[in-house]
Simulated assay, not measured.
Amino acid sequence: MSDVWLPFMDAGIAAIGGALAGSVATVGAAFATGWWQRENIRLTGRAEHWRQRREPRSQVYREFASAVADIRDRVRTQPHMPDSGLAWVSPEFFSDTLTDQLREMLVPVRRSWLDVALAGPQSVSGSAAEIEKACRKLVVFAMGARSTSSDESSQAYVGSSRAFIETANSLSPLLDSFIEIAQAALDDDGTRTQIE
């Protein structure tokens, strides 16, 4: 019985096995093709999304960096600006003109900082927040030094003056760091999972 049954089963099993193997291979190929197409579409869509965000981001980053550079350069060109964060300057340094100009120049910094924060990513907006805070401090310290300049030996004047110089000297490294982080964000083609 076993001899009769075995040849019959071999041919039947072979036919069913062949059909089953062909079906499994076809279904497997369809799944693999479908997965590959979905993955390719996802990556292409993500890259296109990042490309569309890159141009507006580039403009926002440029406006912010330019506004900060304006403040930095205005302070640098102020007569008798010391290089050392430990130095302080005479009260004439903190003129009404300087403090008024710094207050006016802070407006585009704050406006463009908000645009950077909305454009992201977090690494860029965090760097921009640090710079915006330094620019605000710069204005506050200039106004503080101006209001206490009648007594240049007072603790308040010396403290405000030193803090102003130290903050002013920190703007260039902060701006350089921002530009480096912004470039990395703009160089991302969207295939990375996230820039942080």
Rank of each mutant, 00 (worst) to 15 (best):
M1T: 13
S2V: 13
F8T: 12
A11T: 09
G12S: 12
I13S: 12
A14W: 09
A15T: 11
G22P: 01
G28Q: 13
A29W: 14
A30G: 08
F31C: 08
T33R: 15
T33M: 14
G34D: 12
W36H: 15
R38W: 12
R38D: 10
L43W: 00
G45Y: 01
R46M: 10
E48D: 15
Q52L: 08
R53Y: 04
E55T: 11
Q59D: 12
Y61G: 01
F64V: 06
F64D: 04
S66H: 10
V68A: 05
V68M: 03
R72D: 05
D73M: 04
D73I: 01
R74Q: 11
H80K: 08
S84P: 03
S84C: 01
V89G: 02
V89F: 00
F93L: 01
F93N: 09
D96Q: 11
D100S: 14
L102G: 05
R103H: 07
E104T: 07
M105F: 10
V109N: 06
R111P: 04
V116G: 03
L118R: 14
G120D: 10
Q122K: 15
S125A: 07
G126R: 15
E132T: 08
K133G: 07
K133R: 14
A134Q: 12
K137W: 00
K137D: 15
T148E: 11
D151Y: 03
A156C: 03
Y157R: 01
S160L: 00
S160D: 14
S160A: 13
S161Y: 02
R162S: 06
T167I: 00
N169L: 05
N169D: 11
S170W: 09
S170D: 13
L171G: 03
S172P: 03
S172T: 13
P173G: 03
Q183P: 02
A184R: 14
A185L: 04
A185Q: 00
A185E: 11
A185K: 04
D187S: 07
D189Q: 06
T193P: 03
I195Y: 05
I195T: 04
